[in-house]
Amino acid sequence: MMQCLNNKFYEKTNIHYVIIAFTHYSIHSLYHSQIMNHQKPPFFKNWRGFYIFVLGFLAFLVVLFYLLTNIYNQ
């Protein structure tokens, strides 16, 4: 009788464990994949690359504006 109850208990806890673990994993993965995702930016391996590109573009604009200033300054 006790063995039977114990087995049921373990079965139940195992199922609970699985459910909890699954839920935890789902929430965790959902959290990390959708909300706190590490989704890469387009055309770059990581966000750092994208940020460097944006800074490069800023530098390009400054140089372009500087050249325009010098070319048309009379």
């Binding site: 400054v62 504006f65 500087y66 325009l68 200033t69 070319i71 048309y72 300054n73 009379q74």
Partner: peptide, 15 residues
């Protein structure tokens, strides 16, 4: 038009 703007000092973009 761009040249005229430059001559009149309107294209001093970066200082």
């Amino acid at each position: 038009a761009i040249s005229v703007a430059g001559i009149m000092g309107k294209l001093d973009i970066v200082d």
